[in-house]
């Protein structure tokens, strides 16, 4: 059976010179929450745009729900839901946004009314339902945008950073709702910067940098592979920090991630060995260590390690 999404050797360039997506291949299985993780400009949104038929890929083979996005875009769009990264709403009341969206999708009037009430309630939009979207906060707009997408039926949902601007409690409720939808059989592609979210929600994640997939696996496996190490967090005085970080990078290479000119994280298998080395180098370069700590690596460290390696 064909997987809901199958991407093979996808390449995309907007200007014909620089590729923003290069050699990307992955499959998304039915009913799974698949995460695309990466920094800004990594290529996540471009991949989503190709899959949702907004742009034609430069090359590569893509199948969404068994259809080719270039040839059968309309058939795909009838069966997908998309929450874009950028805002999208009509300048009318919150309630009317639901009504219009249901109408645009051809949802039966009584069913649309039922869904609207359910979504307004579950997304905590009751108090602002009569307000114009121009008068509500950024977080409320985002909630409206995500909630509105559930007005229609779909087989595949794209969520491009859906939780940006949403408060902690509502974010958790939203993630739970997405989890529930996935359990009911909905396939979800989810992009985020927030690793906690990916950890909580995604069955598998692809870590992307500069348009390429650096790692693709279940969250558990990624942690097992990359976090069988410890993270040494280091804070130094600004004076001579550059010299220290240079020396450290000669030893630790891509295992060193320089956060800014006073902070760095080193991924190490053996901190007992690493710490004396760091102290020794600090002394030799005339740097003053203000803070040093050792902790177990997290998914964030996996991402940092992979991304710093890529850069």
């Amino acid at each position: 059976m064909t997987e809901p999404v199958s991407v093979s050797n996808l390449n995309h360039s907007y200007d014909g010179r620089r590729y923003v997506v290069e050699g990307v291949s992955f499959e998304v299985r039915k009913g799974e929450v698949f995460g695309l993780l990466g920094r800004n400009g990594a290529g996540k949104t471009t991949i989503i745009k190709v899959l949702t038929t907004l742009i034609k890929p430069t090359s590569g083979s893509v199948s969404v729900l068994g259809y080719d996005p270039v040839r059968d875009g309309k058939k795909i769009r009838e069966r997908i839901g998309v929450v874009q990264q950028s805002e999208s709403y009509d300048f009318t009341t919150v309630e009317k946004n639901f009504d219009l969206y249901g109408m645009l999708w051809g949802v039966d009037k009584s069913e649309a009314r039922r869904r609207k009430e359910e979504l307004i309630s579950s997304f905590g939009l009751e108090s602002i339902r009569k307000k114009n979207v121009a008068d509500i906060s950024g977080g409320e707009k985002r909630r409206l945008q995500v909630a509105r997408e559930f007005m229609h039926d779909m087989d595949l949902l794209f969520l491009d950073e859906p939780t940006v601007g949403i408060d902690v409690i509502m974010r958790r409720e939203l993630l739970n709702l997405i989890k529930k939808k996935a359990r009911e059989g909905l396939t979800i592609i989810f992009t985020t910067h927030n690793l906690e979210e990916a950890d909580y929600l995604c069955d598998r994640v692809a870590i992307i940098a500069k348009g390429r997939i650096l790692a693709l696996d279940t969250v558990e496996n990624l942690k097992r592979i990359y976090t069988n190490r410890t993270a040494i967090e280091l804070q130094v005085n600004e004076a001579n920090s550059e010299a220290l970080f240079k020396k450290l990078s000669e030893i630790y290479g891509s295992n060193l991630y320089v956060v800014d000119n006073t902070n760095a994280v080193i991924s190490s298998e053996d901190p007992k060995d690493a710490i004396p080395t760091i102290i020794d180098l600090a002394s030799k370069t005339g740097s003053h260590i203000e803070y040093i700590s050792v902790r177990k690596s997290t998914l964030e460290d996996v991402l940092i390690q992979l991304l710093s390696g890529a850069s």
């Binding site: 999208s88 645009l104 999708w105």
Partner: peptide
């Protein structure tokens, strides 16, 4: 963009 990733 929202309409064009929908059924239109």
């Amino acid at each position: 963009a929202q309409l064009l990733v929908g059924p239109f």
